[in-house]
Design a protein around this nucleic acid. Structure first.
Lengths: 216, 216
DNA sequence: ATACTGAATATTGTATACAATCAAGAGGGG
DNA sequence: CCCCTCTTGATTGTATACAATATTCAGTAT
């Protein structure tokens, strides 16, 4: 039996993390400590502790004597993420492949189909949600908690993509190409070819050359 | 002119991080908040804030209602690190290669020579220090702060290697092989062959197959 | 000697208090 | 009208206080 006690700090952490992940808090939004205190009925101590942890985990940025701000995706941070995610996601697939059940692979197929549908209907936000689920489907089975944490931290930013100033036809083509790659990934999982999976995800699906087509 | 204010929390963070990195705090050691307060003459508030950040950064483990403990390298965490470091270190080399100056490469050569000397003299701890410097020499030039942070977090564990229960001859052979690989890495940097560097570091130098020879 | 019990002590988690700094706005001079 | 300065109120960073939980240890029973 593990220790299931959760401190107020942990509750505050979840509360703010959910707000950010759910999109309720805009980028660069300044966190008001007082507002959190009032909303949850706790003192500033656990709130500040949660904010420090959120900052360390990449959710927030702490400007000394100014406060905590929701970390926005700058051009620089987007590049940083694209430069790292391929090797990590690919490695996760390699480590996960042996543990994937038939149900897991069926789930991948389902998500691939759902994404195709989302593209057809122009539901780009929905596509991003599904893409997140798709990659998480194998990442979470890689058996490496630290790797899972790294990938989750990076994936949070992909959930924030905005397609506002992108040509619709370009975007459509971009997503269709990406989803064709998802089909290939499913195929390689079916074949249990870990080495090929790692290579394909790392060098093709997340290729640095493709990065310039990624949009925020 | 940037904001160079450093809070007490930041000083406490550095103080404890240095203790851990310097090896003054044994694995599993329980951090005494009061002891830190007395040593630095501050109250518990900034100490606790620093401890929470250190835990989020992988230095410490927080057991609810028990306290903060220096994170030890278990068999599991060692495996986790070995599974991740290759792809990241290799990618860092790829990104760094164009920015490496002649001085940087001379530094790599020097460190390679120093490591050879350390092996000859049986100074294995010294070897680990130099190895850390060697990899840091290019990692820090990759232009990706997040990647640098990840690799540093992983490298901390390598600094903790203990060679107590390893056969001396085996260890000697192991380190000589590793340092031969360092020579090849230097050569590839001289040739500015980023693609080959990435492959070699990821698949040969940090190959998962080699992992079983790594010792703690 | 070992294993239990409970009081005494220490430590953690949280609330509150206070000093230092920041942000916003009123008023005055160019 | 714009810019500067000063004042006021809000916010951050830190110290202290206190309640809840954990640890230690003396005393007792087995």
């Amino acid at each position: 039996m593990t220790n299931e006690y959760r401190s107020l700090k942990d509750h505050v952490y979840d509360y703010i993390a959910d707000l950010i992940d759910g999109g309720s808090l805009a980028d660069d939004h300044k966190i008001s400590e007082q507002q959190i205190c009032d909303a949850l009925g706790v003192s500033r101590t656990p709130v500040r502790e949660a904010l420090i942890q959120l900052a360390a985990d990449g959710y927030l940025e702490n400007v000394p004597r100014k406060g905590f701000y929701v970390k926005r995706v700058t051009e620089d941070s987007a590049r940083e993420i694209v430069e790292i995610i391929g090797p990590l996601d690919g490695r996760a697939a390699l480590l996960a492949v042996d543990g994937m059940t038939g149900d897991d692979i069926a789930q991948l197929q389902f998500l691939h189909g759902s994404m195709q549908l989302a593209i057809d209907k122009g539901l780009y936000k929905k596509y991003d949600d599904l893409q997140h689920d798709f990659h998480d489907c194998y990442v979470k089975k890689c058996g490496n908690a630290r790797l899972i944490g790294f990938v989750h931290q990076l994936n949070r930013y992909f959930m924030k993509r905005e397609y506002a100033n992108v040509d619709a036809a370009d975007l459509d083509a971009l997503l269709r190409k990406a989803n064709d790659e998802h089909a290939e990934i499913v195929r390689l999982f079916e074949q249990r070819d870990g080495a090929a999976l790692q290579r394909y995800i790392r060098d093709v699906h997340w290729s640095i050359e493709n990065a310039k087509f990624l949009v925020w």
